[in-house]
Design a binder for these strands. Structure first.
Lengths: 115, 115
DNA sequence: TGCATATATAACTATATAGTTATATGATAA
DNA sequence: TTATCATATAACTATATAGTTATATATGCA
């Protein structure tokens, strides 16, 4: 596992373009601390379900996130095995924590929990 | 000067969107080691002069770069005073050096030098 | 002064992107 | 089963983006 290698410019710009959207960037930062399902994102971002699904698809297409079905819900999580994860991480660690969004969800009783 | 502070999400996504273009990303990385003028970029990127100018304008608009006229040429350089420079820097330092592009220019005798 | 060079800008075009609505799929619950 | 819930996808629309060509501006030089 290499944590300092550089990344080719084309790949870097492709990843940065994906992160260059406030919704996706916030999703990624949020997923670093909490796995979330689609309907939680819908609540958090006050955005339609298809809009959320389409953002998640872009992140999934380049394998920045992975999905796990749990009953009716599909939970998304960061793919820490991504070839360029250390690059992504170096960006995300500069961002303010987004855990407050989840706390807010919980306060509203909207956090999905399936144990 | 704060080098570890986080950056608000809107601003971060705006900056990342600008860096999420291979031409601009390469320009920024290149400018970290060498100031360049517009016609050099035209050579390096094999791109029309207006296309280059428009990329530079976007970088200039959010003050990531500054310009200095030297005779007929306008040289661009990184604005290290930018409020979010440390954020930008943390991205750029993960990228492969682009100095080779300048070396190549010099080899072709196309590097502009005005002393 | 007049011309050439370097750069910027305007107007336009083609493509990409983010969102919408409508519909399909897949799992659970009645 | 059938209904319902969670999610995905398709088709479409509006806007943003990157490039083009044509033109304007500013500097330096004959």
């Amino acid at each position: 596992m290499n944590t300092t290698a550089t990344i080719d410019m084309q790949r870097a710009s492709q990843l940065l373009k994906l992160l260059g959207d406030q919704t996706r960037l916030t999703m990624m930062k949020l997923l670093q601390s909490h796995d979330c399902c689609v309907c939680e994102f819908v609540e958090i971002f006050k955005m339609s379900q298809p809009a959320i699904s389409q953002h998640l698809r872009k992140l999934r297409d380049i394998e920045l996130v992975k999905e796990t079905r749990k009953g009716k819900w599909i939970f998304y999580s960061i793919n820490e095995e991504h070839e360029d994860y250390s690059f992504i991480q170096s960006v995300l660690e500069r961002l303010p924590g987004q855990g407050g969004l989840v706390t807010e969800l919980e306060a509203q009783g909207l956090r999905i929990c399936c144990e």
